[in-house]
């Protein structure tokens, strides 16, 4: 009954057609799942797309088995500081980072398999009052952190064996940086969104802060997920974690904005609102290419085509409870949908 109430009939077809359940994994030892991610892992010369699940005190690596089943390969036990999120490193193998902390991120750790001594290891990468962290191509990690006096924006390069090399600092803006996104197709460009709703652009090679552009009052509390440059414009995919259905016209969950970095002027390209009938707010989400997925306070997961600005699929809360996590598994077109009890469902989209 609950499912029927939350899923208007017009969305039923799209729900059935767009997402197909491929497999399910359940960590019976996990009491409270906090994050899930897909990662390339190689063992005995065989490279596979594996799944990493995190609960507050441990992180587990799962590999695909026959008949759509999953087997746990290894579990890293963490200390007393709870895991907050998994930080995937794009285009890497046998490496994944995690952020730990209480209310905010206090440290970032690297989890890895070392072929040097044939063992799974963990290594401390960074500590501090960390506001945002993102894995970059080329086995690098960017983070923003605050001391009493100033903000530090730093890039750390990680070696294959996990040892961190010398860091590089980027020129910090005055406002706190809350999220980062690499600019696709531009190796040396990075963007961030700040606490006062600005987009900042850096040159990664020189560390220069190139531009600060205000997102605009019609898109408050924006978090950047993706950026790419085309025809002299910088396109940025933003989410709005406070988006409500009642404000769906003026307060979308996701939007694409085109900025002219030369003039700092911008214009909205598309916006994606919460599907009708879903009371409440956007909770958290993920973007891959032109697809966005988000968990809503109704307990459902909604999927949007960002170029069309349309909701294309809907996963209502299942009999076991509400969804709590939605992550794209790259490079496959799969959605990882997680529940608090440690159940992760893999859907083909």
């Amino acid at each position: 009954d609950t499912v029927e109430q939350l899923t208007p009939a017009l969305l039923d077809d799209l729900r059935e057609e767009s997402l197909q359940l491929v497999s399910k994994l359940k960590d019976s030892s996990s009491s409270c799942a906090v994050d899930v991610s897909a990662v390339w892992w190689e063992a005995a010369g065989c490279r596979e797309l594996c799944v990493v699940t995190a609960c507050e005190s441990s992180v587990s690596l799962w590999k695909p088995l026959a008949s759509d089943r999953w087997g746990k390969v290894y579990t890293w036990q963490l200390g007393e500081i709870p895991v907050i999120q998994i930080v995937p490193l794009p285009d890497t193998c046998n490496l994944v980072c995690i952020a730990l902390g209480d209310l905010e991120i206090g440290e970032v750790r690297l989890l890895l398999y070392s072929s040097e001594n044939d063992s799974f290891k963990q290594a401390l990468v960074k500590t501090g009052n960390i506001k945002a962290v993102l894995g970059l191509k080329g086995r690098r990690l960017v983070s923003s952190s605050r001391t009493m006096q100033e903000q530090q924006v730093e890039i750390v390069s990680l070696s294959e064996t996990g040892r961190s090399r010398d860091g590089q600092t980027l020129m910090p803006p005055e406002e706190t940086v809350l999220a980062f996104a690499e600019v696709e197709g531009m190796r040396d460009a990075l963007v961030g969104t700040t606490a006062v709703n600005s987009i900042v652009v850096w040159n990664l090679k020189t560390g220069q802060l190139l531009k600060k552009m205000h997102v605009g009052y019609s898109h408050p509390a924006s978090i950047c997920h993706r950026a790419y440059s085309d025809s002299g414009l910088l396109f940025v995919v933003l989410s709005h974690p406070h988006a409500k259905e009642s404000e769906s016209c003026g307060n979308p969950a996701f939007c694409v904005i085109a900025f002219n970095p030369k003039t700092a002027r911008s214009t909205g390209v598309t916006s994606s609102s919460l599907p009708p009938g879903h009371a409440g707010r956007y909770l958290e989400g993920d973007v891959k290419d032109a697809s966005a997925a988000a968990v809503l306070t109704s307990g459902a997961i909604a999927v949007w085509d960002l170029l069309l600005g349309q909701c294309t699929a809907l996963l209502p809360p299942g009999p076991a409870g509400s969804w709590s996590l939605a992550r794209w598994a790259t490079p496959s077109a799969c959605l990882l949908a997680g529940q608090r009890d440690g159940t992760v469902c893999l859907y083909r989209y």
């Binding site: 020129m171 220069q208 440059s229 002299g232 414009l233 002219n260 030369k262 003039t263 002027r265 911008s266």
Partner: peptide, 23 residues
Amino acid sequence: CSESDLGPISLNWFEELSAEAPS
């Protein structure tokens, strides 16, 4: 979106801003 809304557009915006910005 039109150029009149966004101002003059440059395909080399990244290189031009890098040349102008303080280092």
